[in-house]
Design a protein around this nucleic acid. Structure first.
Lengths: 223, 223
DNA sequence: TAAAAATCAGGTAAAAACACGCGTATAATT
DNA sequence: AATTATACGCGTGTTTTTACCTGATTTTTA
């Protein structure tokens, strides 16, 4: 019987090693690699003569996050199944994950059985998403890709420029400072900021920062 | 030979189970309990005829965080050694941990060897803190408890009132809304806000929100 | 070609950031 | 007992920044 070949990509070492310990004893699994971030994983993957069947990818990683890695893999190795691991139910990211080619999605708070089941499921070329994910997908299909007022909790993604601005807001820059750094008019930055507020449904800067942190747009290891 | 009796308190199930798997095979360790939050842990602890020697406590937990649990334990079971687990180096929290009676402090990104070593160390009634922690302690001893401009990275804790205000800022309330809810003058809230800015060394609301999230003052599972 | 993204302009009002100062209560230290 | 430090409350200012509005042009992308 062929074992399912698995790779683990997760930046928190303890979590990574723990998950490894939990999965290595499953009879039909073979852990063929454990990496600490997406970049290292992609580099190593290129040198592997035999590729893994399933990859468990952490969503929030420095250097390259799970979605970015997925995108690359979808092009280069579309046959490898991807399961994204996240801390919270990050509904807003689910569209991205699916677009990027993820076949499954797990909250880190789930139990071992769910992990094992999801790996076997995606290995059979099926998809594994939890309830939150399914709900978000249904919502997303209604709205295709533009902005949206925040009444429900359906959310549409930000543009690259908006993410850039949002990251700089998180770094405590004012609009005029951002304008200067990006060589733009203050009005432009203000416009972007307002678009982000409208899209996210936040009331003010406080909300924007939380949104950025929780969606992974901004990674704060400052304090 | 007496084994070191260990309890694990961590809300993320996968991390919890993984750590359990990693530690259970260490020859001089005995995992006597694995709990998902501080409240459950304290309840169970009261019923245990034999208490654990060392407890690994997650810092960021719903219901009761690691520091709050530590405080209770210090009073009721001062003989039990506590090691706090955190995701990032949360320097600002270290004073609190020590005050609350923690004997050790681990970043979740550390390796298994460091965990094992820290458990054995605190079991011998010694303390285990990493470099960041030691640095923060040295800094803290210079400044006793007041506010401080942000030039270095030494940081002093906020008062209860300030934490309250900060939490409401994170909830996207304006100063006047906070004033109304707390039955205060807008000026008072403004004063608190400015004190928090001064203490934390942040430039604006964006920084305050990040500070709150990273120190555990505000828990954001909103998105 | 149509839609979306990115750019800029003008204005207004609210909110935040940053000065000061002033008073009271309370707890720790000398 | 007196001093000191601190938390907490409130006030008057000013300037900067944000929030929200309408409208427009150009470029990019689907």
């Amino acid at each position: 019987m062929n074992k399912i070949k698995i790779a683990l990509v997760e930046d928190q070492r303890l979590f990574r090693d723990g998950l490894h310990a939990l999965l290595k004893d499953v009879e039909d699994f073979e852990i063929m690699g454990v990496m600490e971030n997406g970049k290292i994983f992609l580099d190593k993957l290129a040198t592997y003569p035999v590729k893994p069947d399933v990859v468990l990818l952490d969503l929030n990683m420095p250097e390259m996050n799970g979605v970015e890695v997925s995108k690359v893999m979808q092009k280069k190795y579309p046959e490898i199944k991807i399961i994204i691991l996240t801390v919270y139910d990050q509904e807003r990211f689910i569209n991205k994950m699916i677009e990027a080619g993820a076949a499954g999605y797990l909250v880190k708070n789930c139990d071992l059985e769910e992990v094992i089941h999801s790996i076997r499921t995606v290995y059979k070329s099926e998809f594994y998403f939890n309830e939150t994910a399914i709900k978000a997908m249904r919502n997303a299909s209604k709205h295709k890709g533009a902005l949206l007022q925040a009444n429900g909790n359906i959310q549409i993604e930000l543009t690259d420029r908006e993410k850039m601005i949002l990251q700089m807001i998180c770094k405590e820059f004012t609009n005029s400072e951002i304008a200067e750094k990006l060589q733009l008019s203050t009005r432009t930055v203000d416009g972007h900021r307002n678009n982000i507020l409208a899209k996210t449904g936040c009331r003010n800067t406080a909300g924007l920062v939380l949104y950025a942190v929780n969606t992974g747009i901004f990674e704060s290891k400052l304090f």
